[in-house]
């Protein structure tokens, strides 16, 4: 297989296992490229990519932009704050105006679930979902699984615990789909008010006790508390959250095995994990960031192959 089965990357839900494996193999090549002295390849010369960010993002946007530039694509950036959205233009009109300037691929971050699916139905371009509300964030899940694969040599059969704010997290949903497709077992752990009521229907284990979750897993993915997305209070205080769900070094060291710690960033140091955990040799947080560029290069490269 040398092509993806989809024209867009809207979510992990729509991908076949073979698609994910193809993306990983392609990312292996690009990871080698970005570690060369000359980090750039001409693969996407003449391809124009627009990064549309209707919601604040620093690292995802930077990671995509670097991936695009290292593939030699032409890049334009569009942020909602500086846009016509505030003037009442619809999403379809905004995007069609950009496409009229001959853009091939749209990378979009949007606050509403389903926004990427909606756009893919109404405009004629490849769409890469860079996060849509609490729905999916497929490239994050790909880079997370890729980092696990890099660390363990495989994903199949591993046990991964996702800890924290599952309710507001697109990372959690995409991670669950991705890891399950690759044969891993997934557990979610967090205060019950931050777990979707029907989360067990996704085929994951549910655990309220952090220690038990850590004892069970090979990998713990510590999600960020998304205070900006909680319009009401789901737990009494950050202090109490840290008491129950904060991962510190003494807890980590008290386990009878060495688990791997991940975090999608940005870290609230001292909240989800303490600094000594984030900086420990068990954490692969910076590897995730590096792999983010390689996997995004792979996704864009493969989608552009369909554009031609």
């Amino acid at each position: 297989m040398s092509n993806l089965t989809t024209k867009h990357l809207l979510g992990i839900k729509d991908l076949q296992k073979e698609d994910i494996e193809l993306i990983f193999r392609t990312a292996d090549n690009f990871k080698e490229v970005i570690n060369r002295p000359i980090k750039k390849v001409p693969s996407l010369r003449d391809v124009t990519i627009a990064n549309l960010f209707f919601e604040n993002s620093t690292r995802t946007r930077l990671s995509f932009e670097l991936a695009e530039r290292r593939l030699s694509a032409d890049v334009i950036n569009f942020a909602a704050s500086s846009s016509s959205v505030s003037k009442g233009e619809t999403l379809i009109d905004t995007v069609n105006n950009i496409l009229a300037m001959k853009v091939d691929i749209i990378v979009m971050r949007h606050p509403n679930p389903g926004a990427a699916v909606f756009l893919a139905k109404h405009v004629d371009a490849s769409i890469v979902n860079a996060g849509d509300g609490a729905h999916e964030h497929p490239t994050q899940a790909l880079l997370d699984a890729y980092s696990i694969r890099e660390k363990f040599g495989k994903v199949d059969g591993l046990k991964v615990a996702i800890v924290g704010d599952i309710l507001h997290s697109r990372v959690a949903l995409s991670n669950i789909f991705c890891l399950q497709k690759l044969g891993a077992e997934v557990m979610v752990c967090g205060p019950e008010t931050l777990l979707p009521k029907h989360v067990a229907s996704l085929g994951v284990k549910v655990e309220k006790d952090l220690r038990k979750a850590l004892e069970w897993c090979d990998v713990a993915n510590m999600l960020r508390i998304q205070l900006e997305r909680q319009d009401i209070r789901y737990f009494p205080s950050i202090r109490e959250y840290v008491m129950r769900y904060g991962l510190n070094k003494s807890l980590l060291d008290s386990l009878d095995k060495k688990i791997t710690i991940m975090h999608p960033g940005p870290i609230n140091r001292g909240v989800e994990i303490t600094s000594d955990v984030a900086d420990s040799d068990q954490a692969i947080i910076l590897d995730q960031v590096e792999n983010g560029v390689a996997t995004r290069m792979a996704v864009l490269y493969l989608l552009a192959g369909r554009v031609e």
Binding site: K13, P113, G114, G133, P196, H198, V199
Partner: peptide, 21 residues
């Protein structure tokens, strides 16, 4: 129902949409 957009259940969980219980 707060800012719910669809029925709360396995479907809303899959779609990341806020559910109305």
């Amino acid at each position: 129902s707060a800012k719910g957009q669809m029925n709360e259940g396995p479907s809303s969980t899959l779609l990341g949409l806020k559910g109305m219980p």
